[in-house]
Design a protein around this nucleic acid. Structure first.
Lengths: 188, 188
DNA sequence: CGGAAATGATTTACAGGTAAAACACATGCT
DNA sequence: AGCATGTGTTTTACCTGTAAATCATTTCCG
């Protein structure tokens, strides 16, 4: 879907499906590609492009509540992992939980420790490993931000009626479940 | 959806919707949150979390064909914008088309110019503006990569049957269209 | 026991992005 | 004309992530 990122200046057709709002930017981009390469099947672009664009827009919007608390999203993801699991996690566990590299976790932990949001303690058995846990301040911060976050997300998603939200959620769950299963099997 | 990024080690319930593969990672994370904060409405997380996670997985997978050509995704997006519009674009137009900052475009243009994929020419009227176009090599590269890209995307998406792909595409189009319309109206 | 290999975490060097400032030029107003 | 203001682009300083190398420790076995 990479080649479809973009906001074409002059609309290139793209007849609306339902009839409400006219085409999104992805439809316009796909139209441009179709005009240049009519033989290509642009179907995949319409899905992958929209997923990416939605993710970008939603993240941008979502940043607002977090920034008020002085947290970046990756930082909040890390704190959230500690909060939702309810117990201490090692840096490598945090890396897996947040889908990020160990080096990135190390850096974030340094900052979050300085800010007094997490604490570290060494393992008594294996002195290589560290155990990280939320401080009271960290836990309170997460608990304060999370409801704001969810409320904001809820408001943003209200552009879709509840039944559509349900269908979308289910389709994405199926796609994600299978992607997570099959990933790594493909090597083009 | 921020707080839901993660891959819980121990599954926390999450009954499957249809019945095929058991829950995705998002369902597991949501389950963990529910256990800690049962009063929260985690509905939004299920959508936004999945959108983000799908985007991450799809991008990661998609990188393969591009990297073989020695291009990053943002670089290819820039070349693609030039190819699909069919005419020259100024740096600021490229920034809008690729949803990136002007500074980022400047850097990419420098590299792509050095590699001989794009050319610049100054405007004769307004000497502030530059016009960027693909070189023959740049155009050929895009035309060579695009079909590979689409074929690969198509293969990845085959985890969903065609009707589901259609529904997903339509729902995402509606969500994206409205988000693009309403964005900026919300300030939480 | 003792050295080789593995593992957890951190450090280093670097690539890439952004915001804000700086530049270069054009445009509008008087 | 002449100067303030605006616009297009680039530069600067900085921040964050990554891959690869490093360090410290444990585990595996002969």
């Amino acid at each position: 879907m990479t080649p479809m990122q973009g906001r074409p200046t002059e609309g290139a057709g793209a007849a609306g499906t339902g009839g409400a709002s006219r085409g999104d930017t992805v439809a316009a981009v796909v139209g441009q590609w179709q005009a240049v390469h009519p033989e290509l099947d642009t179907g995949p672009m319409e899905i992958i492009g929209r997923v990416n664009r939605c993710a970008a827009l939603l993240q941008q919007a979502e940043d607002a509540p977090l920034r008020r608390a002085g947290l970046s999203r990756p930082e909040f993801d890390l704190l959230g992992a500690l909060r939702r699991t309810g117990h201490e996690l090692t840096p490598s566990e945090l890396a897996r939980e947040t889908f990020s590299s160990g080096a990135a976790v190390t850096k974030r932990l340094k900052q979050l420790t300085e800010r007094g949001l997490v604490e570290r303690r060494g393992d008594t058995r294996d002195r290589r490993v560290a155990h990280v846990r939320l401080t009271d301040a960290g836990r309170d911060l997460v608990d304060a931000i999370l409801p704001e976050q969810l409320a904001y997300e809820s408001a943003v998603l209200e552009v879709l009626d509840p039944p559509s939200q349900g269908e979308l959620s289910a389709l994405l769950a199926e796609l994600l479940g299978r992607l997570e299963g099959h990933m790594g099997a493909l090597r083009a």
